[in-house]
């Protein structure tokens, strides 16, 4: 079955096209997944920057009540899984989840270890290094960002504050958004790519198979039938086969004609004898 002419014509085309399309789709999906995840991280970093800027005034005036309200309200927004601000020591000062206020964070936990892996904590990180992805206690897939709150002249020059100019970071904002929209978009994209690949494969392989059948296999079958019947001595007209195969058909027709003439000659000789 796999050594027939049909199989030899169709299998290499099928394997080549299918394999190439699958590899292209997997690579494209991996690239698009990375791009979309990076976009979400950039968006979240922007959101974190907006929150830090929005709470700056309350921080300068040491308005803890206003700050706590702002963080709690941010936490009620759909898609926000958590929002918290912790100080340099890792103590959670404000949080959208009231129960965790006053809790101390582990420096080796995801989101902290990126800066605290060495003896001296890193003061700046790229957007992608500030991000972490995990499944929270409610079983939700979360992409979280930690944005440092830097010490500025207005912070250490203000009369009400005790920060020194040497302190680079005063605290950190940690905000986690649900990754569900990203997962949904990726699943939709994956489904569309599978449908698109199947359509490409069907059109390519179906097209090649149909054309081969129409222009090669059917004319060959006609020629085989014609020669089989000629061998058995059955008279039959050879239908047109098309282009190159027509030439072959013409040659076969001539040979069959000569065979028929020699048979008739032999028969007439036999009768004469």
């Amino acid at each position: 079955m796999f050594r027939s002419l049909t199989a030899r014509a169709i299998i290499p085309v099928t394997v080549s096209v299918t394999g190439f399309v699958i590899v292209c789709c997997i690579l494209l999906y991996a690239i698009m997944k990375t791009d979309m995840t990076n976009d979400v991280i950039r968006y979240e970093t922007g959101q974190a920057g907006i929150i830090v800027k929005a709470t700056r005034y309350a921080m300068l005036h040491d308005d803890r009540e206003s700050l706590a309200n702002t963080i709690a309200n941010i936490g009620t927004q759909e898609g926000v899984e958590h929002a918290r601000i912790f100080n340099k020591k890792g103590l959670i000062m404000f949080s959208s989840t009231g129960a965790e206020i006053g809790r101390l964070l582990d420096k080796n936990a995801a989101g902290c270890v990126e800066c605290h892996s060495g003896p001296v904590p890193t003061a700046t990180l790229g957007d992608m290094k500030q991000a972490r992805r995990f499944v929270n206690s409610r079983g939700k897939d979360v992409i979280a960002i930690t944005a440092p709150i830097y010490n500025e002249p207005s912070c250490y020059q203000a009369a009400c504050h005790v920060h020194t100019a040497e302190q680079k970071i005063l605290g950190t904002l940690d905000i986690g958004l649900s990754a569900a929209p990203l997962v949904h978009n990726l699943a939709v994209m994956q489904g569309r790519m599978i449908v698109f690949s199947l359509m490409v494969l069907l059109v390519t392989i179906g097209g090649v198979a149909a054309l081969l059948r129409r222009y090669v296999f059917l004319p060959l079958k006609l020629l085989v039938d014609y020669t089989d019947k000629a061998i058995q001595g059955i008279d039959q007209e050879l239908p047109p086969c098309g282009t190159e195969i027509d030439r072959l058909g013409g040659n076969i027709r001539r040979i069959v004609g000569e065979l028929k003439a020699s048979r008739q000659e032999r028969t007439s000789w036999n009768k004469e004898e």
């Binding site: 030899r8 290499p12 080549s16 394999g19 699958i22 590899v23 997997i26």
Partner: peptide, 26 residues
Amino acid sequence: KLPENFWAVFAAGVTILGLESYHLWI
């Protein structure tokens, strides 16, 4: 990035070696 791209390399290998094996078998 191997976990994300494993199946791409695997599919490439199956395609190339499958095609070569079929050709050699014939």
